[in-house]
């Protein structure tokens, strides 16, 4: 998705331009690098000054205060930080915030419907108790949604393989597979 397409995704009603400049503490003042990015996060367009060293994960957490995206390793090994970038899943700890310039990021906070209704995958995770501590869960759910969209959720073996980048130390894997099997066919109807 390029920038022009992105403008189309963001309908005027959803688009709120939030600008943060050095000295404005409200968004955490990431740094006075003078490097600025223009991104859409959960349907909201933002212009942010970013530290060139900052990861997308740290941008989302420390500067946008979207705490649903978790840090479990900071090395691309656990999947807890999974977000959607232009609709594809990425581990946000392995990406520099600068690289997100002009792109659309969806975090777990942006997955539910505008009226707060749960995404079918979120409901399926509840129904199958596909979690325990819940720390890996936002990443699992972002991955699970992408896994279905990628067409990798058509068999148990496929789900297990394509969900293996998301570690769950509580060992909720049986529930996670069941949740995705349950949600996959319903997602096809429910997603735009």
């Amino acid at each position: 998705m390029n920038r022009n397409e992105l403008q189309e995704v963001v309908t005027p009603a959803q688009s709120i331009l939030v600008s943060t400049r050095p000295g404005e503490q409200s968004a955490g003042a990431p740094g006075s690098s003078g490097l600025s990015i223009d991104i859409v996060v959960n349907r909201q367009r933002r212009q942010l000054d970013v530290d060139p060293r900052a990861s997308l994960l740290d941008l989302v957490r420390d500067h946008l205060h979207l705490m649903g995206t978790k840090k479990g390793c900071d090395h691309g090994q656990c999947g807890a930080c999974t977000v959607h970038l232009d609709g594809r899943r990425v581990v946000s700890c392995l990406m520099l915030a600068l690289q997100a310039d002009g792109r659309e990021v969806t975090t777990i906070e942006g997955l539910a419907g505008p009226n707060g209704s749960l995404h079918v995958m979120q409901q399926a995770f509840i129904d199958h108790d596909a979690l325990q501590c819940g720390y890996c869960t936002p990443g699992q759910i972002m991955s699970a949604v992408a896994c279905v969209r990628e067409g990798h959720a058509n068999s148990v073996a496929g789900i297990r393989e394509y969900m293996s980048g998301n570690l769950c130390r509580c060992g909720a894997y049986v529930g996670i597979v069941a949740a995705i099997q349950d949600a996959a066919p319903r997602m096809q109807g429910a997603e735009p």
Binding site: H65, M67, F125, I126, D129, L131, G134, T137
Partner: peptide, 27 residues
């Protein structure tokens, strides 16, 4: 009974230690 805290957990709303971000925070 469904896990009582699951609804928050699937929305990323559950506050773990590092999710607290008081104003003027240093790292």
């Amino acid at each position: 009974v469904a896990r009582v805290d699951a609804r928050d957990k699937v929305r990323g709303m559950t506050p773990y230690g590092a999710d607290n971000h008081p104003p003027n925070l240093a790292h």
